[in-house]
Nucleic acid binder design. Structure first.
Lengths: 247, 247
DNA sequence: CGAGATGTTGATGGGCCTCAATAGTCGTGG
DNA sequence: CCACGACTATTGAGGCCCATCAACATCTCG
């Protein structure tokens, strides 16, 4: 829950002028709907690196859209283990984990200084009442989240470590491409530790797999700078989801 | 897409008399809302064992509630592998995978002869317009699906095979308890092959883990009949999700 | 009854985790 | 501006968990 001393809130510049409008809430809203909508998203939240946005058990007060920065969500177990559930970047929506019983079930922490647009749940429910387009957008966003989870389950359940890494790099590449950035050169927003955890492997294994990909001249890596040298090669290492075939 | 010769449809008895109303769509709807709702769910679908309900790529035509039987959803890859995404039983809702772009992204097949209640998307969207309670229910259902995925990702990403099986058995136990059945004695609705795939392990490994649990006198297994002998022991083998701890 | 599907058990090897040491990078303060 | 310590990442050695292959047992159903 956002109540920390370091937080600050301020008036938000409108969605209609936001450069993320094509991947965020507004996507698919009519002009009229959008103007109604953006009057309800009246503030932004700033949190610093390593500061929590919400924790498991917190009441669901708002859904958030990331405007700048990056957020990691994760679960912790009673045996001291953790699982990173996702890395969330500008344009991504956060808070669906609290829909089931109005409490968050996962934790969200900033990987760097981050700015978010906050949409309080009360406003959200009212808007869903009057904006058919927003209901559609929400269904799409939630469906996208479910599809990403499906893909992650496939990755963790069936792939070897090299394939997992290749799949991840391809997904990140697409992510940047959709947002108008280079799909072959980009920076990893997360440390090795978190990425290894997300991909269900030891950090040492991740490091070895990066080295292996470099040796195959598929990518070059320098700390967090990624350069995809052979996109087809990377695709060959990954698994594409396809239609057909029984289990 | 449901278009097979074997299908049959018929008028459905009302939701208000359905013994699954506490875990299905109607949960949380007012009496008025429920009567409006059940007039729109005007048919059931019957499919036979091994018959598909929908496939990846099919247009999203309806969402379904399982009335009797069981459904397995899964993904297939271009390299011939598959990943079971979930086993769905009476009261469960199906079809959220198509919300992102109005096409299913996973496959759904009946594990046994199955009866479903069908809610066409056009009706669904109209109902969301006029029934605030339905919007709330949908958010809860979708949130529940997301939480289950999170839990599955944790299981696949962090746990050893024995822990995965223990976690699965506990979840199934809870599932039956909520529906009024015994939480210590029940039948596995799926073959070893599918369960092993779902849990990201080889069928042989699953078999060995069952044997290991039996040796510890935590459960007894005979084909698909499960008998939990030591619930606390099973809990000890599993991992509970908890609040606190950084990654 | 027989054939195919389903499940169990054993032997073996490999992928990946663990432990440990080293190298490189970042941030803070003198 | 540079030095220091803490953090982050890489690399190697050894061993364990689990996948694979194979044989067998049991069940299901035409």
């Amino acid at each position: 829950m956002v109540m920390n001393i370091k937080n600050s809130r301020e008036s938000v510049n409108s969605c209609s002028h936001c450069n993320l409008k094509k991947v965020c809430f507004p996507h698919g809203l009519s002009a009229d709907e959008l103007s109604t909508f953006e009057n309800s998203v009246d503030k932004t939240v700033k949190i610093q690196k390593k500061e929590k946005l919400f924790s498991r058990g917190d009441p669901l007060t708002s859904v958030y859209a990331i405007k700048a920065g990056s957020i990691k969500t994760y679960l912790s177990t009673s045996k001291g283990q953790s699982q990173v559930l996702g890395f969330h970047m500008p344009g991504d929506l956060l808070g669906f984990d609290g829909f089931a019983d109005d409490r968050h079930t996962s934790n969200a922490v900033a990987m760097e200084d981050t700015i978010l647009c906050e949409l309080p749940m009360s406003n959200f429910e009212n808007l869903c009442e009057i904006l058919p387009g927003l209901r559609k957008v929400m269904m799409q966003q939630v469906g996208g989240e479910i599809n990403r989870h499906h893909s992650l389950v496939l990755t963790l359940g069936q792939m070897q470590t090299e394939e997992r890494l290749a799949t991840f790099l391809l997904r990140l590449s697409c992510y940047y491409q959709v947002r108008g950035f280079s799909c072959t050169q980009f920076n990893l927003p997360m440390p090795r530790h978190d990425l290894a955890n997300f991909l269900g492997m030891a950090p040492e294994t991740l490091s070895r797999m990066f080295a292996k990909l470099e040796k195959q001249k598929v990518v070059s890596i320098k700390r967090r700078e990624v350069n995809i040298l052979d996109m087809d090669g990377l695709l060959g290492l990954s698994h594409e989801i396809c239609t057909h075939a029984e289990v």
